[in-house]
Write a protein that binds this DNA or RNA. Structure first.
Length: 518
DNA sequence: GTAGGGTTAG
């Protein structure tokens, strides 16, 4: 461990602990701990505080508490660190207990305990502790504001904000995201525009606010204003939000722009940033650039693999997606339930029945992941599309979850290809029992009935749904060409170039029919 | 050079 003759001191260790913290390297921490004890640095309160914080941030409250209990003497930071640890892990009772037991308190102690109370949803007590404070700092006020905001109580947040004598950037930003969280983008924008000064985080809050409320054009426009202003430098968070907007808009141009921005400004391609970039390119159908980013990334996490696998799947590279899963198994990445949804849906889209069965088996038996209804859905889809109705039905019987309507509707869709009228009837009955008024299912049943020649059934359904006033929310797709985003609905008649579009669609359909025959 | 407040990807 030691490579030089210089003896490490307590600062060396605390610094190392800080470094390990970012990697969640609990084991390294334990090695360091024993080293600290051996060398006799354990007596320093400073070193112990850092160690305690390290254990807490690694999620091991027990070890943190052990260090705290065994300390021969403690300062106020030791107490605050332990209170903070309990707060982060939602262990509010212990936090309060320590707070009451402290020999002396400073502002941080009060603020931590208030933050914890708000996190636990205990507004009454938080407010009364806040009132009891001998003196307040801006952090105390901001803790109250952000606490209320996180609970979705913007009115009380605003009341504290208005009462606050000297508001800081943080107070304003908290209010911006508070209004945004509630979907009130007008008030959020008003706050944002009225801010006496801004920083990157405030811009980020505004951009993320628009993105979270699906106002992607507005998000990009705020980002543009930020660049035009020239006083602020976007950071990783900014770019991740902007990329999220790009991916929802399918805006390849913006995605490429962010990619080159990252290169030009020598941004570190961090895991979350790389993930967002991959997602954007994949949603734009640009798998070449997605792959390039994937390969450029120095580190990857499970989200990276999931994004890449599902990107390949939705763009039709289903085999490649399954192969990538194989590659993932070779690395030290622990798969989770979400990545298996991506892999299984790749199998479904590609009709890869055997691979799908194998992957499902591995998920359950090798990785011990309990299937969710989505996993079951993929398997039913896979079996149904392969025409294995018997197997699908017995698979559904073997599920440890109650089959929902989605499962039945998935199987139902498969009846179209195989013209299985009998199954269609029994599935229809089941679905209508469970969800008689869901317009999506009614439309599905109607279309299926007519597609296999049961015109009378289809007609009956249409009349029944119309009489009941059931209207299906139309699905909408969009594409960006140049700077314009074009939106399309089913049977759309509004687009200026509709004639050409329908002509091309007709052509495509013809080609597809030919493929089917072959 | 240890503790508390605003922004982030499947």
């Amino acid at each position: 461990m030691r490579v030089s003759n210089i003896t490490p001191n307590s600062f060396t260790f605390t610094f190392l602990l800080r470094c390990f913290e970012s990697f969640d390297a609990l084991q390294c921490g334990e090695v360091l701990h024993s080293e600290i004890l051996k060398l006799g640095f354990g007596s320093s309160v400073f070193a112990k505080n850092t160690l305690m914080d390290f254990y807490a941030k690694c999620g091991n409250l027990g070890l943190a508490r052990k260090v705290f209990d065994e300390m021969p003497e403690r300062d106020v930071v030791s107490w605050n660190t332990m209170i903070g640890a309990y707060t982060i892990h939602g262990n509010q009772e212990y936090a309060i207990f320590l707070f009451e037991a402290m020999p002396e308190r400073n502002l941080v102690s009060w603020n931590s305990v208030i933050a914890g109370l708000l996190k636990a949803g205990n507004m009454e007590l938080a407010r009364s502790v806040f009132k009891r404070m001998p003196e307040k700092s801006d952090v105390s006020w901001n803790t109250m504001i952000s606490g209320y905001v996180k609970l979705g109580d913007v009115e009380n947040a605003r009341a504290i904000f208005d009462e606050m004598p000297e508001k800081s950037i943080i107070s304003w930003t908290a209010m911006v995201s508070g209004y945004a969280m509630r979907g009130d983008l007008q008030s959020a924008r008003k706050m944002f525009d009225r801010m006496p000064e801004k920083n990157v985080v405030s811009w980020n809050a505004m951009i993320a606010g628009y993105v979270n409320n699906h106002m992607f054009d507005e998000a990009l426009s705020v980002f543009q204003h930020m660049l035009i202003d020239g006083n602020y430098k976007p950071n990783q968070t900014t770019l991740i939000s902007v990329l999220s907007a790009c991916s929802h808009l399918g805006s390849q141009e913006h995605g490429k722009w962010v990619d080159s921005f990252i290169r030009k400004n020598k941004f570190d391609l961090s895991v979350p940033l790389g993930n967002a970039l991959i997602d954007t390119f994949a949603k734009c159908g640009d798998m070449e650039n997605a792959k390039a980013v994937f390969l450029r990334m120095g580190q990857r996490c499970i989200i990276t693999w999931t994004t890449m696998i599902s990107g390949l799947a939705v763009n039709g590279h289903c085999r490649e997606a399954v192969e990538l899963y194989g590659q993932m198994s070779l690395e030290v990445v622990e798969p989770d339930d979400v990545v298996f949804i991506a892999v299984l849906s790749a199998c479904t889209h590609g009709g890869l029945l055997e691979e799908g069965k194998r992957v499902f088996y591995q998920m359950v038996n090798k990785f011990g992941i309990k299937p969710r209804i989505e996993h079951y859905g993929c398997m039913v889809d896979l079996l149904g599309r392969a025409g294995k109705f018997e197997e699908a039905l017995s698979f559904i019987k073997s599920m440890h979850l109650e089959p929902n309507t989605v499962i039945w509707a998935t199987l139902l869709s498969a009846c179209k290809t195989y013209r299985n009228g009998e199954l269609l009837e029994s599935l229809t009955r089941r679905i209508l029992e469970q969800e008689p008024n869901n317009p999506s299912y009614l439309t599905l049943i109607m279309n299926l009935s007519s597609s296999i020649g049961r015109w009378q059934d289809a007609l009956n359904f249409r009349v029944a749904t119309r009489d009941q006033g059931i209207v299906k929310t139309p699905g909408c797709s969009s594409i960006q060409i140049g700077n314009n985003v074009h939106e399309f609905l089913a049977k759309d008649t509004k687009h200026p170039q509709r004639k050409e579009i329908y002509r091309v669609l007709g052509c495509l359909n013809g080609h597809l029919k030919l493929c089917e025959v072959e």
